[in-house]
Design a protein around this nucleic acid. Sequence first.
RNA 1: GUGGCUGUAGUCAAGCGGUUAAGACAAUGGAUUGUGAUUCCAUCAUGCGGGGGUUCGAAUCCCCUCAGUCACCCCA
Length: 445
Amino acid sequence: MVNDNQKIKKTNLSTQGYRGTRDFYPEDQRLKNYVYTKIHTVLKSFGYEEYNGPIVEHLELYAAKSSEEIVREQLYSFKDKGDRVLAIRPEMTPTLARMVAAKQRELPRPIRWYSIPTCMRFERPQRGRLREFDQLNVDIFGGNPLDEDIEIILTAIEVLKSVGATLEQFEVKVNHRGIINSFLSLNIKAPKELIPQILRLLDKKEKMSSEAFQTECKKIELNEKQINQLEKFIHSSIEDIIIILGENGNDAIELKKRIDILNELTQSNCVKFSPEIMRGFDYYTGMVFEVFDKHPENNRSLFGGGRYDNLVGAFGTEELPGIGYGMGDVAILNFMESNNLTPKLKKETDVCVIRFSENDRLEALKITSNLRSLGIKVEAPVVVSKFGKQIQSAEKSGAKAVVFRGNEELQNNLFAVKWLATAEQETFPNKADGYLNFFEKLKNS
RNA sequence: GUGGCUGUAGUCAAGCGGUUAAGACAAUGGAUUGUGAUUCCAUCAUGCGGGGGUUCGAAUCCCCUCAGUCACCCCA
């Protein structure tokens, strides 16, 4: 016996989950549901429809669309029992592309779709970045780029507003891939092979001192004049850029239209031209954007997205340009936390039924059923403890009232209700009328 | 994948080589068997993230490992 116990102790399992994953206890899940309900409501209000796909795909689907390093380092891949090489989805876009390509001819345009898939990436976790996360994906295709670009940013703004954010708490930084490309090739006259490195550097510029930036520029063999132009570029307004680019400034003019319309519409300045926003290196071809939390303790990117020329390229069907973005659930939860927007949510029970003894089980179950059939959320007692204890426990469940039938009530064919907020108590006849009457009072409480 | 910091109960923590690991809050049971408060009493880590090692003796020192966090990397 003693040996057995020791053995059991030694082989105890760890309660720690896998690194970079989260447990959602009911209170966490409640918050997540609250946020997701808001998201669903906002996107449906724009006419977007929810879609979903499998959590695993053939590895080659990702290999075709993502960079080699990402596929090698950050993909959870494995072989199934039939030796097929699969991967857990690290993002939704390839699945979206596959789904759209498969039915491209029959889908009515414009296509407005969204999804909140759970994805996994093998990364080293830190605040705001886990291995398992949900990522809201919103995309629109088949319309006019100007209108689509405005709408997609608007949905992002409305999502944040729906969880209580004000326009002062975040900013939408926008750029256009065409602007930076024209500038680098025509004004800086940078060699093609240096462009990725320059983009990476500009992306990091915000975090660097001016000196560090200069040193880094010299490392990639930019001359004094080129560095000065770059520095000037990064601090330019959209109006300056239009002048600098001259006859090549069409993309800048287009971008300015979007900024002006969005700011006019929202009566704010939350949309800002930010030449340092890059969003990766391939893939995006038009407007790119990121939404940032302005709170100093969580100055992070919440949403990121942009316009692509052709979502379905690898599938060999006709081109389909569109725009979309992704937003991590971790990001929005952190945003709400840092801006004090996290609501205190209670369990949703309306009523708890109380029992007095082992003999009133059936009576209690009858009341419970009667209440439930009216659509009331009601908890039946599963232990008989002291009356006061049962009231306390009802309070914790978020109930507005406790309901019971003791000897007094049974004799007079009544049921009793104690309202927890006011401590007032009343009785109702134990028949249909009485239950309906109580139901009305509960709704209005 | 690289480097730094951290890890004692549900939570916040004291302890810094020496007998049974402080304290607070929370929780549970009771004083009080049909009424939520307060008060009082009791219970609540054979164990210090996990595994080894050094030592007469380890939460404390060493090694490995797991996890969190920050900075890189990356950010589809």
